[in-house]
Design a protein around this nucleic acid. Structure first.
Length: 560
RNA sequence: CGGGAUGUAGCUCAGCUUGGUAGAGUACUUGAUUUGGGAUCAAGGUGUCACAGGUUCGAAUCCUGCCAUCCCGACCA
């Protein structure tokens, strides 16, 4: 690619709209351009990078026995009605009607269509296993698009689906995909961790996420350095390091706590430790008033709470709903409440603790498990710093991650919904076991930039960069330089090496800065010593900075 | 959904308090001088001041509404 007369531009200043490092760099360097919130154009450089990522994944999908297909993005809504996910996705699904008033959606993910497609093929157990995949644009009306390509409303996903006769077969297919994912992300040089995760709207038996480690990540990744344990915060089991000391139960007592409506205020006022308090969260769970109690230092984990109660929606209760009970906001305790009460299992291990008295301005002290009343008990809180590894008991580590890939053991959920069955060896009809496996391409691109950049710009790994080499001709009017730059450019192209030639009539500083901003791995500078046949060879990461003859420079590139 | 902020030249922003008809830097065009880290000089083009109402002789500026974009929060009893 010659920069002169190419669709290529860079910006000199940070863009106002992009706060994330990757979003800002990709926009500044001319890879992407935003058209509206969470919707981006892929410009020539961006598309090349996306294609690089796509091809690495494609290679590993094919090696794992996948067959590539392409489903439509425009899908009749009835498929999602059948699976119950029209409701499951709720407002996140883009809905539209065709001219005959037929309900359509823009596909947010494609389990339904793949199950439907598989029905054309599967008759008998002899037809399985097989695995299909595609690269297709997904549409999700995210409540809040943000962080450049990290959370968007339209994005290309590689999604794969496996079909097996039984759970054992699914295990084999799943591990094949899992390995293909590891190979793909390893090849891209991404620093990632694999964590257990919530199955969420996908449902099914198991979900594991590939989390690229990055400070702006939206997920909290918990891991153990001493063993292989790792988990997403949303499902991580809580093992408290410091056990509650069992002391003799004292008689429960009511104390005045004026204007202490937060648990911090109460602890401060009564001069007690937060860990010896129990706090309440008054929530609206599917329209029903539910009060959750947990240790004062803990936070409610809403996805755990939903799973425990087999509910769909959770939010804070409004005053109207609270008024249907005898709960007193700010002074709520798990004693004599006339609504549903859920407690965290840790509360049962505490003793002589403090909680609300259900009376404005009063709390109770020396409360013990035998004093309280509840309907459900379970793990409903988040792990926090200091908690222990559930596997080996060592302290857990916390970091932030960007979810770049996810693998699901779906089981028979979608085959049941779509009527996907086969005849087994005894000629009995059985449900097909499915797995589904996704990788977000744009998100992967963003994660790589988050992990690999400096104050000058992006530093692409060799196999992700849009071009491997950029040739900078210092003076566009110097004939000798033109001759050499053209010669190198043509010879590299003939060798199949992807190469940019900066032949613009710009000053050297502009060319150096642009080359560093867009992050091309190797730079050949044709300048001062061109007349002597000498060029400079520099790598973007700084590991190489040498003067070579033209032959040496070309051979060096070929060897890298 | 709740809270906060911002919409003015391709980009980054000033101007708004106190209304008087549009600015800077950068980018762009032409010419000259430059040519190894975002050049200099000269001349030039560039706008529905997000949009819609209203107040006013007069609105980027004041009022009302609306749209868009970004950030924070979705954890408070």
């Amino acid at each position: 690619m010659r920069l002169k007369n190419s669709f290529f531009f860079t910006l000199r200043e940070d863009v106002r709209d992009e706060d994330s490092i990757s979003g800002n760099l990709l926009v500044k360097a001319g890879y992407i351009k935003k058209t509206s919130a969470g919707v981006y154009m892929m410009l020539p450089l961006g598309l090349r990078v996306q294609n690089k990522i796509e091809n690495i994944i494609r290679k590993h999908m094919n090696e794992a026995g996948g067959q590539e297909v392409k489903m439509p993005a425009l899908i009749a809504a009835e498929y999602y009605e059948d699976s119950g996910r029209m409701k499951g996705f709720g407002p996140s699904i883009f809905k539209l009607k065709d001219r005959n008033n037929k309900d359509m959606v823009l596909g947010p993910t494609h389990e339904e269509l793949f199950a439907y497609a598989a029905k054309s093929m599967i008759r008998s157990y002899k037809n399985m296993p097989f695995n299909l995949y595609q690269f297709q644009t997904k549409f999700r009306d995210e409540p809040r698009a943000r962080f450049g390509l990290v959370r968007v409303k339209e994005f290309v996903m590689k999604d794969a689906y496996s079909f097996d006769a039984d759970e054992k077969g699914l295990d084999v297919s799943y591990h094949k995909m899992f390995d293909a994912y590891k190979k793909s992300f390893d090849e891209m040089g991404i620093n990632y961790r694999i964590v257990k995760a919530d199955t969420g709207v996908m449902g099914g038996l198991l979900s594991e996420e590939f989390q690229a480690i990055a400070p702006l990540g939206e997920d909290t990744v918990i891991y153990c350095d001493d063993c292989d344990y790792s988990s997403n915060l949303e499902v991580a089991e809580v093992i408290r390091a410091e056990k509650h000391i069992k002391e003799e139960a004292k008689p429960m007592q009511e104390v005045e706590t004026p204007h202490c409506e937060s648990i911090e205020d109460v602890a401060k006022y009564l001069k007690i430790d937060m860990k010896d308090t129990v706090k309440a969260l008054i929530m609206n769970v599917d329209g029903e008033l539910v009060i959750f109690f947990m240790n004062g230092e803990r936070e409610l984990n809403e996805s755990k709470a939903l799973k425990l109660l087999k509910a769909n929606e959770i939010g804070f209760a409004d005053d109207e709903l609270i008024a249907t009970s005898n709960a007193v906001p700010g002074y709520c305790g798990p004693i004599d409440l006339n609504c549903k009460v859920v407690i965290d299992k840790e509360v049962l291990e505490m003793n002589n603790f403090c909680c609300g008295a259900n009376k404005k301005g009063y709390h109770l002290i020396n409360v013990n498990p035998e004093n309280i009343h509840y309907d459900v008990v379970g793990d409903i809180v988040n792990a926090k710093e200091g908690d222990l590894c559930p596997k080996c008991g060592k302290p857990l580590k916390f970091t932030k991650g960007i979810e770049i890939g996810n693998t699901f053991k779906l089981g028979t959920k979608y085959s049941k919904a779509m009527g996907l069955q086969y005849a087994d060896i005894d000629n009995k009809l059985q449900d097909v076991w499915m797995g589904s496996y996704g990788i977000g391409l744009g998100r992967t691109m963003a994660a790589i930039v988050e992990q690999s950049h400096d104050d000058k710009g992006i530093i692409w790994p060799d196999n992700i960069a849009p071009y491997k080499v950029i040739i900078l001709q210092m003076s566009s009017k110097d004939e000798k330089q033109t001759e050499i730059a053209e010669d190198i450019y043509n010879r590299l192209n003939q060798s199949g090496i992807e190469c940019m030639l900066d032949d613009r009539d710009e000053r050297p500083g502009v060319k150096f800065n642009d080359a560093e901003l867009i992050g091309i791995p190797y730079r050949i500078t044709v300048g001062k010593k061109a007349a002597e046949g000498i060029v400079e060879f520099k790598s973007r990461d700084g590991s190489i900075n040498e003067e070579y003859t033209i032959e040496e420079a070309i051979n060096k590139i070929k060897s890298l």
